[in-house]
Amino acid sequence: MGTLYVVGTPIGNLKDITFRAVEILQNVSFIACENIKHTEILLKYYDINKPLVSYHKFSERQKSGEIVEKILSGQDCALVSDAGMPAISDPGAILVKEALNKGIKVESVPGPSAVTSAISISGLEYNAFSFLGFLPEKEKDKRTILENFKNSIYPLVLYVAPHDLEKTANFLLKELGDRKVTAVKEITKIYETVYETSLSNFEIDNMKGEFVLIVHPVEKKELSDSEILELIKTELNKGKSKKETVVYLSKKYDINKNRIYELTIQI
């Protein structure tokens, strides 16, 4: 039985690949790739000549079985996407799942990722974020996804194709209200650029290229003691105990529990 290697490939600059990834691509029996012509450019750059099997979102269910059979027969396979890590907003998850179900060893060969690269040069000081990938085409489906994240205290990170950029910004404005936005385009390429803008005044001077949009959370408003007292009274009038009120308001508004408790004493 062979091994399935999930290999990270460059997201722009062909030099952004690990020694191990090159070694794996040189030694596997065949490579499953999202786009044969695109992958051939990378392989030619590193003088690698291996059989290629087309594996994209329109064929992954059909091709997964064929690839798994090859691996079961003893062949090693490297799975690559056009850019970055396979199975992250790219084909691959179905093949990985089928391989695991058949007892095949699956190894990660880490490489570049547009989402982490964009976050790293954005200057945002958050210890978490929500990655939404590419939003669905239908507005109803987009709205369903955003409904679960609109009140998040962390940034939302999306992949956006250039032809969808303005439409996506307008949709996000309608659903989320105005937010600050960091837009990162053409990561690791010659025209890599970081834009600081907002959903209501979305200004990008050149919309060519692939974008990562980082939508900031709503800026917190510091509540005054009088405002917190009103919130406390409202919850007490609903029948909550003082302890329940402290816990509830602290969680909902991210307020220190001791501060709320001291204010409850005044009531």
Rank of each mutant, 00 (worst) to 15 (best):
M1A: 12
G2P: 04
G2W: 02
V6A: 03
V7N: 08
T9Y: 01
P10W: 05
P10N: 06
I11Y: 00
G12H: 03
L14K: 01
I17S: 07
I17P: 04
T18Q: 10
F19A: 09
F19Q: 11
R20Q: 12
A21H: 04
A21C: 07
A21V: 08
A21Q: 04
I24P: 02
V28I: 06
S29L: 00
S29V: 00
F30C: 10
I31Q: 04
I31N: 06
I31M: 05
A32E: 02
I36Y: 03
K37F: 15
L43V: 00
K44M: 00
Y46F: 11
D47V: 03
I48K: 05
P51E: 10
L52A: 10
L52N: 12
S54Q: 14
K57I: 11
F58C: 05
S59C: 11
E60F: 03
R61D: 15
K63N: 15
E66P: 07
E66L: 13
I67C: 13
V68I: 09
V68M: 06
V68C: 02
E69M: 09
K70Y: 08
I71R: 00
Q75T: 09
D76W: 08
V80I: 07
S81Q: 03
A83V: 10
I88V: 15
A93L: 13
E98C: 10
K102V: 06
G103T: 05
I104M: 04
V109E: 02
V109T: 08
G111M: 02
G111N: 01
P112V: 07
A114C: 14
V115H: 04
A118T: 08
A118N: 09
A118D: 09
I121C: 14
S122W: 02
L124E: 14
E125P: 10
Y126P: 08
A128P: 00
A128Q: 09
F129S: 06
S130C: 13
F134E: 06
L135R: 12
P136W: 07
E137H: 11
K138Y: 09
K138D: 14
E139H: 05
K140I: 11
R143M: 06
R143K: 14
L146H: 14
N148I: 10
K150G: 10
N151M: 11
N151K: 11
I153C: 14
Y154H: 15
V157G: 01
Y159H: 02
H163R: 14
D164S: 15
L165N: 15
A169H: 11
G177D: 02
K180G: 12
V181T: 00
K185G: 08
E186L: 08
K189N: 01
V194Q: 10
Y195N: 06
F202S: 13
E203N: 13
N206R: 14
K208H: 15
G209A: 12
E210G: 06
L213T: 07
V215G: 06
V215N: 05
E219H: 12
K220R: 15
K221P: 02
D225F: 00
L229P: 04
K233F: 07
S241C: 07
K242R: 15
K242W: 12
K243D: 08
V246P: 01
V247T: 15
Y248R: 11
L249D: 02
S250L: 05
S250N: 04
K251E: 14
D254V: 05
D254H: 09
N256H: 04
N256P: 00
N258F: 03
I260V: 03
Y261R: 07
E262F: 09
L263F: 09
L263K: 12
T264Q: 09
Q266E: 07
I267D: 01
I267M: 12
